[in-house]
Amino acid sequence: MLVDYSPVSRIVGRLTGPGKRLGVAIGAAWPATVLVVAIILVWEFYTRHSGIKPTTLPAPSRVLQQIIENRQALIDNALPTIAATLSGFALSVASAFISSILVDFVRPLRRALFPVFIISQTLPLVAIAPLVVLWFGFGLLPKILLVALVTFFPMMVALVQGYDSTDKDMEWLLRSMGATRAQVFLKARLPSAIPFFFTGLRISITYAVVGAIFAEYSGAAKGLGIYMLSAKNNFRPDLVLAAVFCSALITLVLFGCTVLIERLSMPWEQVRKDDRK
């Protein structure tokens, strides 16, 4: 156990119950918060005293001011990005789930499909994104497809690895009870994959937002990607950074959601962690 002298953890030590849990969360977040604040302060100091032009590097305070002034435009452009991210991600998770089951039940399929999936991961997004937009237009569809393309493989690999992590004794036990292949899958292999699934989910949700922005960058009517592109073309790095801030915020919120869902769907893991304390 690490000795923690931080003021927050000293206060947390005196709390109990749900207050304590919240306190622990704050306690865990404070080093990152301090680091981010420090970086912003250095950045602010540098832009004020080095004489660098705001069209090259705007101060964080200027970016914040732009966020407030352009909040309506930012929200209008963030909404399609969120929509593309979520629908693309949903498509990706659903198809990864279905194909992982197929691959689990039909072994030869695994050998046939995995090379294709690996190749799909080597396609450079820079080259593929404009093509997908060319084929499917400026609407939502090409964005959904690109988000699905970048997130499908990590989800698929996570699920297949999860199935394979199943305790062999557990499967033997189920077979000895007369379980069918489908029962073994539902009662042992699928639950064994849950932790892997959430690891995959956390990794690919961050890819998903980047994928959506990339797709918009290659051509869209609205969205943070196209907003960044036109801000850049107008020599407004402050607006580019304002949009970057929005995309980071979206990613963080979505990441937080996956962590929350993970906790809710694995109560036994929570019990284990609480007992360790």
Partner: peptide, 8 residues
């Protein structure tokens, strides 16, 4: 041999 209890 090992209890093979399902943790979930």
């Amino acid at each position: 041999q090992r209890d093979a209890l399902m943790p979930w």
